[in-house]
Design a protein around this nucleic acid. Structure first.
Length: 959
RNA sequence: GCCGGGUUGGUGGAAUGGCAUACACGGAUGUCUCAAACACAUCUGCCCGAGAGGGCUUGCGGGUUCGAAUCCCGCACCCGGCACCA
């Protein structure tokens, strides 16, 4: 490669150099592939079956989060998790496990589609090329994957089953009594037999097909509905709530998002809210992620309460509110409906009631005008604007009054956009004294307040004096008594119970649980995704295609892009790429009642679909009859001791998927479980979030990134082409000009060095900056390891058959003990530190005993597998060490012969003693008190107390 | 605003109630070399001191304890999530 290397090779032709590493690595990668070393057998026969002595071992199913095969190629941050799972998997193989580890590709997605739009190249072509490139890049890292099990979501034989699962979900309903999904056919039977009445009471047979479809649509777990969705004109597609950022923009592309009413496919994930919440307890996940899921699901306990209201035309109706503060019902002095609430039109009177406060009317002549104007204004606002104006409360009086059911008072009904149609019932009772939002609204509209919870912070009960609402669960209820009920003197929780019971008795309310979670918007107006296995008949009724017609393959189209619009133009609606191919859309099919004309669904599934179940397909990737063989699923994922829900043993990936992917995948898994397809009821037992590898970004005076590789450091300042540049920490990537690729590092040091360095940088779950300069440390470690076994000049193996010295033996066993524990707990950085210490110790020996060398090679094998295999084979072993037994420490040798005992006086170290580990407290105390330095430190003072923690510590407290 | 996580040498980090700074990078000096690189060896938290030695040190302030980076309370700053969720 360069002159320096050839010079090095001349003096030490058998030194562990990048060139030698490259030869070793390529050689072992070929051999592993040839011998199928990492193929994990399934139990039973079948194509992926294997010997029973392997399938009878305890299993470990280890997974990485699915990568998207980006055209940009990998940088060194990408493989961090893959290396970690690989190290862990290799360790598990060496401790007697049947390890399933592979990697597939989440290959549908926007970048390939956008590239296709620009170039006209079919996304399949670019995606497959990217997969090939990425596979080559990953192969170079020596990952121990079972390649037979790798899949890509774009393979028709894979997405056939994605579509099949969609049909399972479509053809199911959630039975709240059974707490689970059941086939829709059972529900149809209930309707047909009359066991369950139809909504309007007519017999099932009397309903038209579209009517029946509508009824069932209310139950199906996958349903099409006309509901407010997140419409993103800039992308030309709708988005799930989870894909919209807090400031109302698209996570991808950062375009404005608008609420728009469109007919779209939804997944009834809300039916599973309680199970998704409860089952988190069974999982070994980081608390932070569990918390994020809990918050996203957002369970809150409260009550529904009916407020009677006069409806124009046909008499009285009720506004149902959801509240968590039923205890403050006496304090409800007005009500608010979401602007788009169905009841609004019905309650608006023709004219303003007499003496209506001018602030309430918004200056409009009639309530109807005011409502119309406010609705228009609210609808035109993007989410971004709404967020920005959140502090300023807006709204308008509807002209109607409702009755507070406990006090009998008339309360005005407003509409305001601070009440959201999508949460609770879309209506609230406002208790301005005890809710800060209601307080702000009441102040703006000069509405009355009533204090019903006694302030415990010293403020009085005169709300006019208050700067803000008083909100506490510790305080007591006041001023809340009527002929019917009195809450006075109760604490908040007591009052809730009492009020809920009272409401229930009167039939005007009931205790309920409400969730923040909304149903999952499941359709996208894109080309590069799974087509829905759904067609519509001439009456517009959706029909599921039979399994025999799967997969529904993507058609060829002229133009891959959805129609996009001015990003700020809310007044637009989606147009899908698939709809342009009329030949594909219009089909004649026989769905059981003779050939008929149908129109295909032209939306595609969102990117999440393929990643919702891929763990299952890894188990049985070539099964053409079933999603997965139940016996195979039970073996790899079934519930067992310590894993009541079953699932993958270790799932490593980034924390950015805390809600989206992990929630969706859990939901699908539960549906499949309910329908009897899988025995586990959670997909991922243990989840671990790896940190991000960050990188320094250097920016010039204009703020543009400059190539990080060409920046030089002088006296703590940074310069690029002589100009001073600013350094900051950021992500690694092409656009920031700071990407370092695994290929570069492999070329300069070898894959084993890269693996070792990435694992040594710090704890796996913490983000940290990449430092190319520091990689050489890991390289030196491997060079020393090599030199401990092989003569750099002759290439001879230099180990001797001598029994190691006791000191060496103790160092070895201490290292084995520590490394085993660290490996099992994913603490690879400290495992490497311990291996380094041992290696450095051995380096100082005149001759290296074979016993020590072999143990050391096995110890580092999971981390640096190629060089370990090479040394293992040079040490005379013929087979791969993949399934060799990981060294086990001899407990007798784990402890040093003597330990250093520190003697403290008043907590400060004054002396050190070398003592045997088994020394008795009394003896150690005597030794410590006799020590010269201790006597001197005490200076003749008396002793009040002596704390002895044999054998490590004595602390003397002088009088 | 609410919730969660964090703050240890020049740098990445180790130590989760008992010797703070393991291991590595960087830096200094030396060996080898015509020289450089590689490799190897020694030193390297900060301050005072020629030295022996002494003092200080885990974001800041308090507390518990014989003993605190570690446990508790308060504060500052950084990172992440959520955000009119009734």
């Amino acid at each position: 490669m360069s002159e320096t290397t050839s010079a090095a090779e001349a003096t030490a032709p058998h030194r562990y150099t990048a060139q030698l590493a490259a030869r070793i690595e390529a050689g072992w990668q070929d051999r592993w592939e040839r011998e199928g070393t990492f193929e994990a057998p399934n139990p039973g026969g079948g194509e992926l079956g294997g010997p029973e002595d392997v399938t009878s071992r305890p299993k470990k199913f280890i997974m990485d989060m699915f990568p998207y095969p980006s055209g940009a190629g990998l940088h060194v941050g990408h493989p961090l998790g893959y290396i970690a799972t690989d190290v862990f998997g290799r360790f598990q193989r060496m401790t007697g496990h049947n390890v399933l580890h592979t990697l597939g590709f989440d290959a549908f997605g926007l970048p390939a589609e956008q590239y296709a739009v620009q170039t006209g190249t079919h996304p399949r072509i670019t995606t497959e090329a990217n997969i090939t490139t990425m596979r080559a890049q990953l192969r170079r890292l020596g990952l121990a994957h079972d390649k037979r099990r790798s899949i890509a979501t774009i393979d028709p034989e894979y997405y056939k089953w994605t579509q099949w699962i969609f049909l399972q979900i479509f053809n199911s309903w959630y039975d709240p009594e059974a707490r689970g999904a059941r086939p829709i056919a059972e529900l149809v039977e209930q309707f047909a037999s009359g066991a369950r009445p139809t909504p309007d009471g007519r017999p099932w047979d009397a309903l038209t097909a579209p009517e029946r479809a509508d009824v069932l649509g209310e139950y199906r777990l996958a349903y099409a509905s006309e509901s407010p969705v997140n419409w993103c004109p800039g992308l030309g597609t709708v988005l799930a709530n989870e894909e919209v950022t807090a400031d109302g923009r698209s996570e991808r592309g950062n375009f404005p998002v608008f609420k728009s009413k469109l007919r779209q496919w939804m997944m009834r994930i809300t039916a599973y809210a309680d199970r998704l919440l409860d089952d988190l307890d069974a999982l070994d996940w980081p608390e932070a992620i569990k918390l994020q899921q809990r918050n996203w699901i957002g369970r809150s306990e409260g009550a529904r309460i009916d407020f009677p209201v006069h409806v124009t035309g046909d008499g009285d109706a009720a506004i149902t509110v959801f509240t968590t503060r039923q205890d403050t019902l006496f304090g409800a002095t007005y009500m608010v409906l979401a602007p788009e609430h169905d009841l609004v039109d019905g309650i608006v009177p023709d004219a303003w009631p007499e003496a209506t406060h001018p602030v309430w009317t918004g200056g409009h002549a009639t309530p109807a005008e005011a409502v119309a104007a406010y609705r228009k204004q609210a609808a035109a606002k993007s989410d971004v604007e709404r967020q920005a104006e959140a502090k300023e409360k807006t709204g308008v009086f509807t002209g109607a009054f409702a009755v507070n059911p406990v006090s009998g008072e008339l309360v005005p009904v407003f509409i305001a956009d601070y009440v959201l149609m999508g949460y609770g019932t879309g209506a609230i009772m406002a208790v301005p004294a005890h809710d800060s939002r209601d307080f702000a609204f009441a102040r703006a509209f000069e509405l009355p307040m009533r204090c019903v919870v006694e302030p415990s912070d010293g403020r009085g009960q005169d709300t006019a004096e208050w700067p803000d609402a008083f909100d506490s669960y510790e305080a007591r209820i006041v001023d809340s008594a009527s002929d019917a009920i009195s809450l006075d003197g109760l604490t908040v929780p007591e009052a809730k119970v009492a009020m809920t019971a009272w409401l229930g008795e009167r039939g005007i309310g009931e205790g309920t649980v409400n969730y923040r979670l909304r149903d999952w918007l499941f359709s996208r107006q894109r080309y590069w995704g799974e087509p829905f296995p759904v067609v519509y008949d001439e009456e517009g009724v959706a029909h599921a295609l039979p399994e025999s017609m799967l997969p529904v393959q993507l058609p060829e189209v002229e133009d891959y892009s959805p129609r996009t619009f001015d990003p700020d133009d809310a007044d637009t609606s989606p147009e899908t790429p698939l709809s342009r191919n009329e030949d594909w859309v219009d089909v004649t099919l026989d769905l059981g009642d003779g050939p008929k004309r149908y129109r295909r669904e032209t939306n595609t599934m969102p990117n999440w679909a393929g990643s919702c179940w891929y763990e299952l397909r890894y188990l049985d990737p070539r099964n053409t009859e079933e999603l997965v063989d139940p016996a195979v699923e039970a073996y790899w994922m079934g519930p067992r001791e310590g894993q009541p829900a079953g699932g993958v043993d270790l799932y490593i990936g980034g924390a950015e998927h805390a809600v989206l992917h992990l929630l969706y995948a859990r939901f699908w898994h539960k549906v499949l479980h309910d329908l009897g397809h899988v025995s586990s009821y959670e997909p991922f037992h243990k989840l671990y979030n790896q940190g991000m590898i960050q990188a320094y970004v250097y920016r010039d005076a204009r703020g543009f990134p400059v190539p990080a590789a060409e920046v030089v450091e002088r006296d703590g300042e940074y310069y690029f082409e002589g100009e001073r540049v600013r350094r900051e920490l950021g992500k690694m990537g092409k656009s920031l000009k700071n990407a370092v690729t695994p290929d570069e590092i492999c070329a300069e040091y070898g894959a084993d060095t890269l693996r070792l360095y990435e694992m040594a940088m710090g704890p796996l779950d913490v983000s940290r900056p990449w430092d190319t300069r520091a990689v050489v440390g890991s390289y030196r470690f491997l060079q020393r390891l090599w030199r401990n076994v092989v003569d750099e000049e002759t290439g001879e193996v230099t180990v001797v058959d001598d029994e190691p010295a006791e000191e060496t033996l103790r160092a070895l066993h201490k290292a084995i003990d520590g490394i085993r524990t660290d490996m099992a707990n994913l603490r690879f950085n400290t495992a490497i530190a311990k291996a380094t210490e041992l290696n450095n110790h051995v380096t100082k020996l005149e001759r290296v005993p074979r016993q020590v060398a072999e143990a050391m090679v096995l110890l580092v094998a999971p981390l640096a597998p190629h060089v370990a295999e090479e040394l293992w084979s040079r040490l005379g072993h013929t087979g791969s060490l993949t399934y060799a037994d990981y060294p086990v420490a001899d407990p007798a040798l784990v402890q040093d012969e003597t330990v250093t005992c520190v003697v403290q006086v008043k907590g400060k170290v004054k002396a050190r003693l070398e003592v045997p580990p088994g020394i008795a407290d009394a003896e150690l105390e005597a030794l410590a008190l006799a020590d010269e330095a201790v006597v001197a430190a005490l200076g003749g003072a008396g002793i009040r107390k002596v704390i002895v923690r044999a054998p490590k510590l004595v602390n003397i407290v002088p009088a």
